[in-house]
Design a binder for these strands. Structure first.
Lengths: 116, 116
DNA sequence: CTGCTCACTTACCCCGAGGTGAGCACGCAC
DNA sequence: GTGCGTGCTCACCTCGGGGTAAGTGAGCAG
C-alpha cells in the first residue's frame, strides 16, 4: 500500500494527491468503482470516450499506487474485476467534499449561466 | 461567481472541480493564498519552478472562475495583490480532506518506503 | 471455416499545456 | 546615461499524455 510517484518533490499533501488522481479519467474510474467492483468492459461502457489503451494504463497505475485491486478469473472468455482497496475507499472519501463543491458551484452555475 | 469551463460535459461534480484546479500549479496557488493575500512576485517565489507566463495565465483563469480576486494598486513600481474570494475559500475547504489524505498516505509512505 | 467475446498490447501520431527567453513601461538610485 | 524592480505580454518550441487502429489467443456458435 505504498504510493509515491515523484518522491521528494511535493510541496504539500494536496499536490501529492493530485499526482495520484491526475490522469484524465482517474476520478471517473474511482467514482465508478465506489458503488461496486466492475469488469474492464463495464468500466469502458461507463466512461464514454475512454479508449482501451488509456483505461488499461490508468488502471495499472491505480493498481501500482494501491488504490484499486485487480482480480483475474481464469475463465474463457477471460474475466477481470477491479475494486477499490481500503486505501482507494479512503481516497474516495477524501474526494467527496470536492465532488460536493463541484456539484454545487460548477454544475449549479452551469445551469443558471452557461458560458462559451 | 460563475464557473464552467466545459459546459454540459461533466459526468459528476468531481471532474467538474478537477477542471477548475487542473492546472499544474493551481492547488499550490490556492494553498499559498489560503494564509493571506499575496503579490505576484511573492507567489513566484513561493512556487519554485513556476514561470511568470504560466503563473500569470493560471491566475487569470482562477480569476475568471471566481476563485481569486485581483487588486491593482496604481503605484510605481506596480503592485498587484491576489486573494481568495469566498468561493475560493470554500474550494480550499473542500480540498482540505484531500490534502490530509495526501499528507498521510503519500508523504507518509514516501518517508517509510521511497520508490523509483 | 468464419465470426464473435473479452481483456488487453503494440506501434504510431497529434496537439496543447507548459517551458524559454526576450521585451516593455514606469520611476528611482547612482 | 545605466541599471534595477515590478508585473506582466509575446513568439517560439518541446514533450508526453492521450487518441487511433490493428493484433492476440482461447473457446464457443453457426
Amino acid at each position: 500500500m505504498v504510493v509515491a510517484r515523484r518522491p521528494g518533490s511535493y510541496e504539500c499533501g494536496i499536490d501529492a494527491a493530485m499526482d495520484v488522481i491526475g490522469g484524465k479519467w482517474k476520478v471517473l474510474i474511482l467514482w465508478a468503482l465506489d458503488e461496486r467492483a466492475r469488469r474492464f468492459g463495464e468500466l469502458r461502457r461507463l466512461l464514454p470516450g475512454v479508449t482501451e489503451k488509456v483505461l488499461a494504463s490508468h488502471l495499472r497505475e491505480l493498481e501500482a499506487d494501491g488504490i484499486v485491486h485487480r482480480e483475474v478469473f481464469d475463465e474463457v472468455p477471460p474475466r477481470v474485476e477491479y475494486s477499490l482497496t481500503p486505501l482507494g475507499a479512503s481516497l474516495n472519501g477524501a474526494l467527496e467534499p470536492l465532488g460536493a463543491w463541484g456539484r454545487e458551484h460548477v454544475l449549479g452555475a452551469e445551469v443558471r449561466a452557461p458560458r462559451r
